[in-house]
């Protein structure tokens, strides 16, 4: 028998959010009704067992591979002591150091090969700033810093579509200025390499959206397609990259168009987020490309308003674990 792959490390994220309860629910759902066509992903939570909901089925492990010895449906927890207990819905700055340490520990495990991939629960930036002086713009940037890479790319993926926003959390009015040839080139190269390495697509086909309506319509409605996007695409095509575009963003997401590419590279946040959420509101998975390890996360936040009520929907976390498993399989195949 071949040795099972290393399991996936799941961080607890902000414990006052829905992360802990989602982990418990996910372990149960994966045992009871795994998705057809793929084995249920093996994973373990890194967090403080005191933060789990009352009555949760969990068991402490001391090394990741102990996951495989646990009964099905029981959540494996690699315990990490937090400074304070937890109240769902009320982030406690006293626990900020714990949240950060769990992420660091998970990165160390995945970099050492003890975990095959990293899936992260959402954090709450303000609690980390207040409690630990967290100095990164976000979760992803922190992971990039831990991994020592200067730039990563965010990709959102569901069964029907993969999208990459070239600019993310900036005002729409700043997009045109932020979109440089260097930024777009990095985005395209990282996306291309990520699809090759973690999605086993030998020659990825990338569709690139225009910035303006109808992709500028030959310059009648904006010049960025002519001055910026087209010259870059031509240069990268000359290297052999399979690129289409700049395409009119409103006609590049219907099924026939989607069949012609492996990922759509968009110019701004909503250009990427509107189509994927319209296609798959809950199952979208956030994938970070460009890290030395595999990282996925559910496409939702801490949801303090429903934390602890048992109402949170684990489908995006489950999809994130399946995608991490699949990527790890493809990377190591």
């Amino acid at each position: 028998m071949t040795r099972p792959p290393a399991p996936i490390a799941l961080t607890c994220g902000e414990p006052a959010g829905i992360g802990p309860e989602l982990a418990v629910a996910t372990a149960q759902i994966l045992a009871e009704s795994p998705a057809p066509g793929a084995p249920a992903p093996a994973f373990f939570l890194i967090g403080d067992p005191r933060h789990l909901p009352d009555g949760a089925a969990w068991r402490a492990i001391s090394t990741p591979n102990e996951v495989y010895a646990l009964p099905k449906g029981v959540l494996a927890v690699l315990p990490h002591d937090f400074p304070a207990p937890n109240t769902p819905g009320q982030p406690n700055p006293a626990n900020a150091t714990g949240v950060i340490a769990v992420i660091e520990r998970a990165v160390a495990l995945v970099q050492a090969g003890a975990a095959s991939a990293l899936t992260t629960n959402p954090i709450h930036k303000k609690a980390l700033i207040d409690g630990a002086g967290f100095g990164y713009p976000g979760h992803t940037e922190f992971l990039a810093a831990l991994a020592g890479v200067p730039r990563v790319v965010m990709m959102l993926a569901c069964a029907q579509l993969r999208v990459v926003p070239s600019t993310i959390h900036i005002a729409l009015g700043s997009v045109s200025k932020a979109l440089t040839s260097e930024l777009l080139e990095e985005t395209l190269r990282i996306t291309h390499a990520g699809l090759q390495r973690d999605f086993a697509i030998a020659a990825p086909r990338l569709a690139v959206a225009g910035l303006n309506p109808h992709a500028g319509e030959g310059g009648a409605m904006g010049a960025e397609e002519i001055t910026l996007i087209t010259p870059l695409l031509n240069r990268l095509r000359a290297e052999g990259m399979d690129l289409s575009g700049p395409l009119s963003a409103d006609t590049m997401f219907h099924p026939a168009a989607r069949a012609r590419y492996d990922a759509a590279v968009c110019m701004y946040h909503d250009q990427a987020l509107i189509p994927i959420k319209t296609l798959d509101f809950s199952g979208g998975v956030n994938v970070t490309l460009g890290l030395p390890f595999i990282r996925t996360s559910p496409d939702h936040g801490t949801a303090f308003d429903i934390a602890g009520l048992g109402q949170a929907d684990p489908s995006s976390l489950i999809a994130a674990l399946y995608m991490a498993q699949d990527m790890a399989h493809k990377r190591h195949a």
Partner: peptide, 29 residues
């Protein structure tokens, strides 16, 4: 990124978009 889904589910009769692609991406899909 979510207002059109709400409208399609019946929460609104109309969505006023600020710019072309914001409205056209969701409605064409």
């Amino acid at each position: 990124d979510t207002v059109y889904i709400k409208a399609f589910a019946g929460a609104f009769d109309s969505v006023l978009a600020m710019y072309h692609d914001q409205g056209q991406i969701a409605t064409k899909l």
